[in-house]
Design a protein around this nucleic acid. Sequence first.
RNA 1: GUGGAAGUAGCUCAGUUGGUUAGAGUAUCAGGUUGUGGCCCUGAGGGUCGUGGGUUCGAGUCCCAUCUUCCACCCCA
Length: 418
Amino acid sequence: MSIKKPRGTSDILPAEIPAWRFVEEVCRRQAAIYGFSEIRFPTFECTELFARGVGGTTDIVQKEMYTFTDKDERSMTLRPEGTACVCRSVVENGLYAGALPLKLFYLSNFFRYEKPQAGRTREFFQFGCECFGPSTPQADAEAILLGDSVIRGLGIRGCVLHLNSIGCADCRPAYRAALKEYFASHYDELCDTCRSRLETNPLRILDCKSPVCSAIADGAPRTTDHLCENCRAHYEELKSILAQSGVEYVEDPRCVRGLDYYTGTVFEFVHGGIGAQAALGGGGRYNGLIAELGGPELPAIGFALGLSRLIMAMEAEKAPLPASGEGSLYIAPLGGDAVSAATLLCQQLRTRGVRCETDITGRSAKAQLKYADKSGHTYVAVIGTDELAAGKCELKNLRTGEKTGTALDADSLAAAVK
RNA sequence: GUGGAAGUAGCUCAGUUGGUUAGAGUAUCAGGUUGUGGCCCUGAGGGUCGUGGGUUCGAGUCCCAUCUUCCACCCCA
């Protein structure tokens, strides 16, 4: 019986690598352009980091974490998301004492024990950005613009930015109370999960997908009507910066977010062509998290994009990948002396930086030509006793079929292939 | 965690009310052409029919369980 990969994981095969490389390159390039530096953190952390950072009422902490006990009886957890990890590192390494704003990004894999579905796996990859220091709407706008530039840089057009503000520590309690009162008056109609949310996290009832709860939520008090003066002004300013920057958005009072650490601005990049898991990414402000993890009061905003969802959106829109453009050569020797000559020539071309292969199987010319074509080479040179004697060969372009004569030495071939 | 659909060759799939040695296309390899890929022709290799039970004289086919995949709920990137 063969061994299979764990449920909800995926192999990224050679044919898919160009798309992944392209997405990663665009993420890194845009992050650099916006002044973000890369950070890397452990694959597993102390379980308490997520229990405190992500929040005990979230589904992530309650039922989706890969938690295990190590040999010292300490509880460890495979990272289910990045923001808590980055914050821990910022606090532990005192990065907040350096220049502010502190702008960090990561490209990492994360783990959640969920039921696999289109756009959702148990191991997944995110590009995340976090900006620490400023609490200004300009910082929010910068984060959103960075996310938007990555999505657009990939050629994805059909993505809509959903925007909302869920209020700060000052105004959220009052809003929470208003929501609780409203939903309590509809208690008998709510679904079971929403009844329990009423106590734990009434905000989450707002994006319940059940038709009944959804209809009730339509009449619920809106976050944006209950914002304090600071939050309201902040939200208005953010909207005006986005409008000025040419970023289209829709205000979505139902956009709340499932992680406990969010305060104020929240947003999501939603795409219609990738199935039910429609968010390419999302994020928001989390001004209390650094302090919660033992650091100073340090405002922050961040977001993350799902890499496989970005690729799915590109595929749905048939967004093209950039062409490589580098020429390459396959040398097909025909037995005897030609094999050792081809091996030497191949090595000389490789030291000149040319992608080059020759036969290592001993098979026929026909089979070699077939391989050269299928493995993506642009040129092929067949070398037998005639070519060796003459010191010349024909270079065949596998795309066009045209042949050109070339001297049989590494410099000439390298020049011709480039 | 809940629900729906599906698992037969590397891939895409046929397979009759349950009946001999499970097929096709495609891909791979070889030959037709000791020296020029894509088209054509011929041949070869490749299967515990997801797994385990059950019913039966007999199971790819029917029943149960289980695993996996896909889709949705939930949740999130």
